[in-house]
Every structure is written in structure tokens, then in C-alpha cells.
Amino acid sequence: MSITEILFYAFSGVLLVSAVGVITARNPVHAALFLVFSFFNSAVLWMLLEAEFLAIVLVLVYVGAVMVLFLFVVMMLDINVAQVKEGFTRYAPLGILIALIVVAEIGSVVWVKSLGQEVTPVTAIAAEPGYSNTGALGELLYTKYLYPFELAAVILLLAIVAAIVLTMRKRAGLKQQDIGAQVSVRAQDRVRIVKMPPVIEAGEKQS
């Protein structure tokens, strides 16, 4: 067994254990942390395939941004586990069906491979000296798949704008800062200096 294979089996083993941990952990924060851990392990598996760009971006996007916000929400909510698990028996048949489909998909890939077909001919290209996975990916994205790529970007932008619009509510009587007005304020707007002539009452002696 080569060192790559040992690493592969070690990290896939940890990945499977942490994936099971995601669905069995009682505490939702622990479940989210197990998910973070499984992302790290799958990133290592991609690294072993020399897909360094995908591996690093998985950590950057999912671990660094998505899961941070996810944890943020999970920590703030006080989730009642019993309530969440209420519909378990009702949704179990659908869940089992999806699980079977996934198993069948994995099985079909293994079956095709057992027939001697190459499923992912990635190693042949990666073996070339000076091969940069990131460069190759970028070149494909910006030439062959330019329109689908741009379309995906626009859809994501639309989702961002939609999320902001949905959560922006204007309440009556809400006090808000106007930074521009604050910055451009002048001393005359805040303080009025008045000059008043002194009033001297009759009979009072001036000193």
C-alpha cells in the first residue's frame, strides 16, 4: 500500500465517522462542528486527487464563511431537539428512498469502474510537470463554460439582493443614522452663540 492510499483510507475513515456524528450528535452546535470537520476531511481527499483549487475553496467558502454564519445562527437559537424530531416517522420513508438512490448512484460508479472504464481520467493530466489545477480550471471556466459561469454568478447576485430586500423592513418610528448628515455638520448647526446686552437694574451700583 502506498503512502497516498494510507492517507486516503485514514482521512475517509475520519470523514465517515464525522459524517455519522453530524446526524447523531444531540447538541446542534456539536453537529455543526462535525460538519466542519467532515468538510476539512473531504478537502484533504480532493487534495489527494491533486484538485488543490477545489480543496482550498471548499475550506475557504464552506468552513470559513458558510459554517461560521451557520454556527452563529445555531448558537443564538435555543433549538428544542424533541420538537425538531417530531415528524421523523412521517418523513422516514422519503429519507430512506433518497438514501437508496444515493447508494445506487455510488454503486453504479463502482460498477462502471469494475468493468475497466476510466471514470475520472484526472491523474494522466496532473502528472505533467508545471500543471496548475487552478490555472486549468480558470481557463475552462472563462472560455468553454463562460456563459454558464456568468449565469451562475448573476443568479447568486440576485439571491444576495433578494435576501437583503426580504430582511429590510421599514418600521414606523425607527431612528436611523444619516452618516452623510453627521459628517457634514457644521458648528453653526449645533451651537447658536447669542450676544445679549447686559441688563442693569435701576439703583444697582456698577462696579
Binding site: 488543490e52 482550498i56 475553496v57 475550506v59 475557504l60 468552513v63 470559513g64 496548475s132 489545477n133 487552478t134
Partner: peptide, 9 residues
């Protein structure tokens, strides 16, 4: 190769 991405991650 992807040193900068590694740093960001």
C-alpha cells in the same frame, strides 16, 4: 501553486 488561496482559507 495556490499559496494565496491557502492563506485566505
Amino acid at each position: 501553486n495556490a499559496g494565496l488561496l491557502y492563506l485566505l482559507a
